Amino acid sequence: MTAQVREAADRNRFTAETERFRRELLAHCYRMVGSAQDAEDLVQETYLRAWRSYAGFEGRASIRSWLYKIATNVCLTAAQPRPIRVLPSGLAGPHDGPDSRPSEAAPGEVSWLEPFPDTWITPSTDDPATTAVARESLRLALIASLQHLPARQRAILILREVLAFSAPETAKILGTTTAAVKSGLQRARARLDELEPQPGELLEPTDKRARALLDGYITAFEHSDASLLEKVLRTDATLEATPFRSWYAGRLNCLNLLATHVLGTPGDWRMIATEANGQPAAAVYHRNDGKLQAHGIVVLTPTATGVTRVTEFHNPALVVLFGFPNVLTN
């Protein structure tokens, strides 16, 4: 067997053994760094490192835990020189000034959290319970809170409570002791309890009530009708949008901002329903020079009593990342 044939056989075996974990590794890296685009790059680096060391992998651990060890350490290395990614609500309290116009952050001033396309990690199983767990672990509020944890605590909490690795397995992945893992998990839980908001029971994006709320939100924008939005938002709803530092609490404040500075005239906006972070979402287009051009992604947090949070990401590149065109033709 020639060296080339042997390498090709090794490559095929490597692909067969590792490729099935790519989607869950994407979700893992996203939980660690809060950026779908960065997660793609980090998973690519994970597979490059795994291939380079594959010849020395002798099955002392499962392929899955071996890949998670590489991916977690890739993420920890990447996190060291970078500021954490946040949402506007992670910077300060809600806007309470006389002018409702939001203040935009200077370029590079803040590193913003990004949404994650559900299509990237849709489980191959038809088990509703498995699907619900996958969605719950990617909720925007949870991802935003995770970013405020020290990177190693973040990794411990994700490995233990999301991925269900044991304390000894987690210690091996992180190159530390079981005692350190248990202590880190305790501190991470306590901090997360302080950070993560409790909006009540959230609706799954496949729930008819959640889809009705998303449809109502889309219709309100496409018709530039604030009164329709009033029917969708809860009285305690919040609204935030990157790259604006200001965010708004209370339905009246949200409606005032949208009606005054955002909605415009009918036909200015077009939205296409999708799912992000296990929540109903939409790709947003805004009319500019007569064309409907990509504007960003909006993610809703739906409950049985209405939408409790609207989070919009004003970044046209995200629309393409979610698999939609940059410009709509009609």
Rank of each mutant, 00 (worst) to 15 (best):
Y285E: 13
P280E: 04
A276D: 15
L292W: 15
N277L: 05
Q279A: 13
A283V: 11
D289N: 15
A294N: 07
A283E: 00
A304S: 15
M271S: 04
M271L: 12
A276I: 02
D289L: 08
K291T: 10
D289P: 03
G290C: 01
T303E: 00
L292R: 12
A276Q: 06
V298C: 11
A294L: 02
I297Y: 07
H286L: 08
A281S: 08
T301W: 00
R287S: 09
Q279N: 14
V284E: 05
I272F: 08
A283W: 00
P280C: 01
R287N: 07
V298K: 01
A304Q: 14
I297F: 07
L300E: 04
M271Y: 06
G306M: 04
V299R: 02
Q293A: 14
A282R: 07
E275A: 10
E275P: 00
H295N: 15
N277G: 00
Q293R: 12
G278V: 04
K291Y: 04
G296P: 05
Q279W: 08
R270S: 06
P280F: 01
T274H: 03
R287V: 05
A304F: 10
A294Q: 07
H295I: 01
T305W: 09
G290R: 10
V284M: 15
M271R: 15
Y285N: 15
Q279K: 09
P302Q: 04
T301Q: 09
R287G: 08
P302S: 12
A283Q: 02
D289W: 08
V299S: 13
R287H: 12
T305F: 04
A282Y: 02
H286P: 00
G290Y: 06
A273I: 01
V284P: 13
A273D: 05
A281C: 12
I297V: 07
Q293D: 09
P280N: 13
P280I: 12
A294C: 09
I297D: 14
T301I: 01
L300N: 11
I272L: 15
A276E: 04
G290S: 08
A294K: 05
H286E: 13
L292C: 06
D289Q: 13
G290I: 03
A276T: 07
G306D: 09
G278Q: 02
Q279Y: 07
E275G: 02
L292V: 04
E275I: 02
V299T: 14
A281H: 09
A304N: 10
N277R: 11
G278L: 00
